[in-house]
Simulated assay, not measured.
Amino acid sequence: MTSIPTLETERLILRPQRMEDWPEFAELMFSPRAAFMGGPFSVDAAWGLFCSDIGQWTLMGHGALMIEERETGLCLGQVGINHGPLFPEHELGWFVYPGAEGKGYAYEAAVAFRHWAFTARGLDTLVSYIHPDNIRSRKLAERMGSSLDFTAPRRDPVDLVFRHPHP
Rank of each mutant, 00 (worst) to 15 (best):
G63M: 08
A152N: 13
S128F: 08
R70Q: 15
R154E: 07
Y105D: 03
D53C: 08
E20Y: 05
G80S: 15
P85C: 08
E101W: 05
F41C: 03
A106E: 03
L140C: 08
L12I: 01
G99N: 14
I81Q: 06
I13D: 04
R15T: 06
L14I: 04
M66K: 12
L76Q: 04
M144R: 09
R143V: 09
I130S: 11
L7H: 08
A110G: 07
L86H: 14
D156A: 09
G102T: 10
G99E: 13
L65C: 13
Y107D: 04
F50N: 08
M37I: 13
Y105S: 04
S52W: 07
E101G: 14
L65I: 10
V79D: 02
T119V: 15
G80W: 05
T2L: 00
W57G: 01
P165A: 15
A152L: 13
F87K: 02
V96H: 01
S42E: 12
E89P: 03
H62W: 10
H115T: 11
I135A: 14
R143L: 13
T6R: 08
P132G: 07
Y129N: 12
Q56K: 10
C51N: 14
P98L: 11
G61N: 01
E27Y: 02
R114N: 04
R163G: 00
Y129C: 12
G73M: 07
Y107A: 11
P88H: 13
G38K: 04
L126M: 08
I54P: 01
L92P: 02
D21W: 06
V43L: 12
A141M: 06
E91G: 01
S147P: 00
H83E: 09
D21H: 09
L59H: 06
T9S: 03
E10V: 03
R70V: 09
V161F: 05
A141C: 14
P16F: 00
L123G: 05
H164I: 11
E10K: 05
I54N: 01
H90L: 06
A141R: 08
H166K: 13
E20R: 12
L76N: 01
F25M: 06
H90P: 14
R18Y: 01
E24K: 09
G55L: 07
G80R: 13
H115L: 03
F25D: 06
H83Y: 11
H131M: 09
F36W: 12
I135N: 03
P88L: 10
M29L: 09
R138F: 00
R136D: 11
H131L: 12
N82F: 13
G80K: 02
M60E: 14
L86P: 00
P153R: 13
A26H: 12
P98M: 10
V127D: 05
M37P: 01
I54H: 04
R15D: 00
A112G: 09
P98V: 08
S42M: 09
R33P: 02
T6N: 01
D133T: 02
S128G: 00
W22R: 02
G99H: 10
F25V: 03
R114E: 05
E108W: 03
R155L: 06
G38T: 02
T119F: 10
L140I: 15
F30G: 07
T58M: 10
M19E: 15
H166C: 12
A120C: 11
R11Y: 03
K139L: 15
G80N: 09
E27R: 15
F30D: 05
A106W: 00
